[in-house]
């Protein structure tokens, strides 16, 4: 219950646009979510961090589907569960088409990575986006410039930057999912 209260306070601040609260919210929320995924995917621990990051991307992309007056933890776990089921479905389709031995060696190699690291590289995916989306995200989400500063720097309008970030983040979430 304490987790619910704390996360909910942070999330409602985040939905009002407080970046610090949102940062803290994502950090706090990722702990129980990681535990949730780890418990259920104990046969494939290397996939946990990938899936956690995909879940965080989905939480971000779908944060407008959380309503401030409702419980937050069921919403969080429902997203994690949906992402996990979707992942397992994709994986079983993938496995049916692939030699299981290859998969085995892939996992062995993958397990050398650090636990909090995902094999997927958002930076590389970012490079494939159209320039206006890439620059909008680069300046405002990675370099931490304000939207107005990014607009001044690129010569794009403020709303073009916002649209670029919005569309770009959606495209990244999609790419993330499709990169099996």
């Amino acid at each position: 219950m304490m987790m619910e209260e704390e996360l909910r306070k942070l999330m409602s601040m985040a939905l009002d646009g407080h970046a610090d609260s949102y940062h803290l919210f994502l950090q706090r929320a990722s702990m129980p979510l990681r535990a949730y995924l780890r418990r259920r995917l104990n046969a494939i621990p290397d996939e946990v961090e990938d899936l956690l990051q995909e879940t965080l991307l989905a939480i971000h992309a779908k944060r407008h589907t959380y309503r401030r007056d409702e419980l937050l933890t069921p919403w969080l776990y429902a997203i994690a569960r949906y992402k996990m089921i979707d992942f397992l479905r994709r994986r079983s389709q993938h496995e049916a088409l692939n030699d299981p031995l290859d998969e085995e060696t892939e996992w062995l190699e993958a397990s050398e990575d650090a636990v909090s690291d995902s094999k997927k590289d958002l930076g590389k995916m970012l490079e494939t986006l159209p320039e206006n989306q890439r620059l909008s995200i680069q300046h405002t989400k990675l370099d931490g410039l304000s939207v107005a500063e990014a607009a001044a720097m690129t010569g794009m309008s403020v709303s073009a930057i916002k649209v670029g970030v919005h569309r770009g983040m959606k495209a990244l979430a999609k790419m993330w999912k499709e990169q099996a």
Binding site: A19, H23, L26, L56, H60, L122, L145, S146, V147, V165
Partner: peptide, 9 residues
């Protein structure tokens, strides 16, 4: 990733 998502939200 968390840093990126939360920056300028």
């Amino acid at each position: 990733l968390i840093k990126m998502l939360s920056t300028n939200v």
